[in-house]
Design a protein around this nucleic acid. Sequence first.
DNA 1: AAGACGAAAGTGGTTGA
DNA 2: TCAACAACTTTCGTCTT
Length: 321
Amino acid sequence: MQYFIKKCPECSGDDLFINRDKGEIICRACGLVIEDKMVDAGQEWREFEAEGGETGRRRSGAPMTYTQFDQGLGTEVGQKADLFNLDSKDRNKFFRLRKWQYRISTAIERNLKLALAELKRVSSFLKLPKSVEEEAAMIYTQAVQRGLVRGRSMESVVAGALYAACRRHEVPRTLDELSEASNIEKKEIGRTYRFVTRELGISILPSNPADYIARFASSLKLNPETQSKAVEILDEAQHEELTSGRGPTGIAAAALYVAALMHGEKRTQREVADVAGVTEVTIRNRYKELLDKLDLERRMKEERKKGRRKKLVVNTKKGRR
DNA sequence: AAGACGAAAGTGGTTGA
DNA sequence: TCAACAACTTTCGTCTT
């Protein structure tokens, strides 16, 4: 892997944190998300000839990818040259097989072509990293092969596959976001998502509220400190078993809200609620639980004092100017 | 006046008989 | 298939800053 960015353009610090799954480079010093679409310049070694001839790997041909409708590789039954070696019986068989192969593959491929175009559209709308898109395409391909699309709209299965892929890569998008991007009802996506993952035996960990923090925090323009405070709170909340059974977005939102208060970067419940896609009431409920169980009230006062002192210093500086 | 808070009723989904 | 249930939402009135 090779990265072209060596220094943070914001603060020119060189302590860059690279998160491959999320496709992000984050500056540890100032929290800036520098790049959310990385180029994977790594080499990909793959066996092209399964049998006979040379062993060892060669780098040739297009990289295999599931986002191409036939994974970048076409399948044909036999080649013309083979015909000379067959008697008439086998020759008939050969034609029959090729005909079927053609029929089956064209039906599936036509579907895949359409579906993958849709998948790319939605994925780019949501600015998802390539790795997630790949995973989603793979899931969709398997779903088609298992005949799971029958009776469901292609678009909804695509959305379901993307949702599953996001979860697996720990870059969760909410059902709402997916719904907006794909014009499919939220519950429909949820349904196909559950169905597909169950049928394909894909195990998904329950999504972690912490995964949402970074995204929410950046759309609220909060400090990295506040952000890590929120993650801290989240950790404690998990210890107190405040998180199970609750919607992860609500918890993330509440933690962020509290953290913002503590660091004097107040955001209204409304603002936080909007970016998290929950209501103020939910934030209030979670927030109340957090205060109760974590003894945050006292700590919050302390932190706020610190914050005020800082502000005071800033003000006097300004006053001198 | 805006934001925070809380109560009450409604919604959509899960679970277990 | 139905009822009970928990989480979350909507709505609205009241309190606080």
